[in-house]
Design a protein around this nucleic acid. Structure first.
Lengths: 140, 140
DNA sequence: ATGTATGCAAAACATTTGCACCTGG
DNA sequence: CCAGGTGCAAATGTTTTGCATACAT
């Protein structure tokens, strides 16, 4: 029995099989960024019979608990990643949908300044850089 | 007959009443950022009987033509703004949904550098700062 | 005339919710 | 035991699409 039950309990949630399995998928999956559908399919492959609605509910609860964070890709669907406590932004390949992460303190600082200039109390921000990754450029 | 017909024609589109009216709404409306639904309702108020599907189609065509740009707010629905040729990013008030614009050359430059560092050929980027605007802060 | 554009209703899509049943502590 | 969790199906909200009709050039 792994340790992640603790995280779930700390979030005020009961340790149930669906919640353990969703967390496990996020941890063991080769892809760091997964949609609810991705998680659902991975669970099916594992032989777990967990409904898609439950996957959505669990991911939302995990988000509220700070265990995962939700990225909203270009208006369309959401993807989730395990929260590691380190804020970062994302680069997305529009060709292969690969996602890379980056941290840039200059941008963070400018954002804070802009919010202050405009009289906003910043609650969060989202920055996505879209482009074609190295591998996809080489492919053409 | 206003001049905007030219823009529509340049985009390779026929000058039709729905297209002229949608463009007019975007130009005369007090709100610079409008959802398809907002445009649709404004048309109804004007007494124009234009279908919502047509509004979506026209806005998408205008986007392709570079006449408007589409913002994807926080995963949910899209809003459109007239394209003025000057790139800018957005600050959104999470309380009153007001949208402000800003331009920051430092952030633009850092984004370009990051794309290069990561081997990406940047195609576009989106940056949204969420927060509580001055007026909403004062209200509480 | 004829290729486009439009309106309507239906479909699509991601996500959420109501409700009866199940289950963890 | 029983509050909370789950599965399923139906509802949601936004956007898209099929198709028959109407219109711009």
């Amino acid at each position: 029995m792994s340790m992640e039950g603790q995280d779930i309990k700390k979030a005020g949630l009961k340790i149930t099989l669906p919640r353990l399995k969703v967390l496990e998928i996020l941890e063991v999956s080769e892809q760091r960024h997964m949609s609810a559908e991705d998680v659902y399919k991975a669970l099916l492959l594992m032989g777990e019979d967990i409904g898609l609605a439950t996957v959505y509910r669990v991911l939302t609860q995990f988000e509220d608990a700070g265990l995962v964070s939700r990225l909203s890709i270009d208006g369309g669907h959401a993807v989730f990643e395990l929260e590691d406590g380190v804020h970062h932004d994302h680069l997305l390949c529009v060709s292969c949908n690969q996602i890379e992460e980056f941290v840039d303190e200059v941008i963070e600082q400018r954002q804070r300044s802009i919010a202050i200039e405009k009289g906003f109390k910043m609650t969060e921000h989202s920055l996505y850089i879209y482009g074609i990754c190295k591998q996809c450029q080489e492919k053409n």
